[in-house]
Design a protein around this nucleic acid. Structure first.
Lengths: 219, 219
DNA sequence: ACAAATTTAGGTCAATTGACAGGTTTACCC
DNA sequence: GGGTAAACCTGTCAATTGACCTAAATTTGT
């Protein structure tokens, strides 16, 4: 049963900014432009290239102005990660509510959605950066784990629906394994990686393997 | 069938330096000390903290001396990555030659070896760094993919042995999926991660799932 | 013991970094 | 349209970075 023909919703919003209290409209736009530029640098050239001056220059903005909007580099980083992570969270939220299809079908579609997203340049480049950073920055660590809790939520509820006989904790571990498995393809079949052309076949393997796992797993 | 009782060989050699042509003994030691210090900084504090002056200070060595041994920062990085990657390559080489056990048993043991290694601090911290770097540094990219080709070799030969009916390319993709799946657990069940205590259960899930996959996969 | 190779030490250099202080201009509300 | 807060700009600061250079001390092979 090939799955190439299932329509995949795509994600356009790179960033989701939090509601702002006061301030002028222009301020919001500028803030967003800054974050968007910063994300672009992070994706194109990596974390070490992401300096305040670099961001200012790339925005066509004076350095002093940037420091007005983001007092410190750390401020900017925190808000950048928050905004990007939020963008994935809204995506996962959309996945969570899927019409009452059969659980196995929902599992399949969730996995395909995630695996297709992994092939985007944004995801292929952004996540390894936060994986590395999360090893040394508690804030990134915390925020990233929060993100993945939400990313696993749809998987978890499907697993629990399919296997009411399992303990909650076991469902969690199964969902984690499935999620982690998919993340692991990033470095090999993500955007620009050697196995990118085989991603569709990997998707088949993954989905089939996951479905059997959830169906039959006995602790 | 619990697997906690299988003895796991551990890896002590953090670095494997290439054979050196001429030079004195002390020079080699100093070089090795430098690389060891650099690796330690990379693991403990991440790539941005890895500056030449920092390495020199941490070795109790003058900056000028460090620049004698490694003319440039890039020189040091290349050799560091080479040495660390080489250390994993010797590990995988050891795995490859396993006495004529049943293929499924070998698959199990290879996977357990890899998953246990993922829980070490060195692996949990080093690999995300090169995953991130490989997105922007062609040298790291190249070297990393080489490493993984070797890491998959034992898996691949087991898959081909178990499934002579499959095309070579399909065996490759299956081996890749298995390898990638395991790598993906790094950020969740690696050293210091939230699911680290559940790694043993994850290993059970992974091994069982992989064995069934190899046994039954039909393209 | 002697010469060559190697190791250490010290310093300079331009470039880049993040933080900050002081202004000026612009946008918005009344 | 005037006033105020927001947005923007200029310039400076100390600190750090990597590359480079020179000279002394030490180790090694012979």
């Amino acid at each position: 049963m090939p799955n190439q023909d299932i329509a995949i919703p795509t994600l356009e919003t790179d960033l989701v900014l939090p509601e702002r209290e006061g301030g002028y409209a222009k301020g919001h736009e500028t803030r967003e432009a800054i974050l968007r530029t910063a994300l672009s640098i992070l994706i194109e050239e990596g974390y070490p290239a992401l300096s305040m001056r670099r961001v200012a220059k790339e925005c066509g903005m004076k350095f002093g102005n940037l420091t007005y909007h983001f007092r410190s580099r750390e401020d900017l980083m925190r808000e950048l990660f928050d905004a990007v992570i939020r963008s994935y969270e809204v995506e996962f939220l959309a996945i969570a509510q899927m019409p009452g299809a059969a659980p196995e079908d929902r599992l399949r579609r969730v996995c395909l959605l995630i695996l297709d997203d992994i092939r985007t340049k944004k995801t292929t480049h952004f996540f390894p950066e936060i994986w590395a950073l999360s090893n040394h920055d508690p804030f990134v660590f915390e925020r990233m784990q929060e993100l993945y809790v939400r990313a696993r939520a749809p998987l978890l509820s499907i697993v629990e629906e399919m296997r009411p006989d399992l303990r909650h904790e076991d469902c969690e571990t199964v969902a984690l394994f499935i999620s982690a498995s998919m993340e692991g393809t990033t470095m090999f079949a993500g955007h620009g990686k050697p196995f990118e052309p085989r991603m569709k076949q990997i998707e088949d393997i993954a989905v089939e393997s996951f479905i059997h796992l959830v169906r039959t797993w006995k602790r």
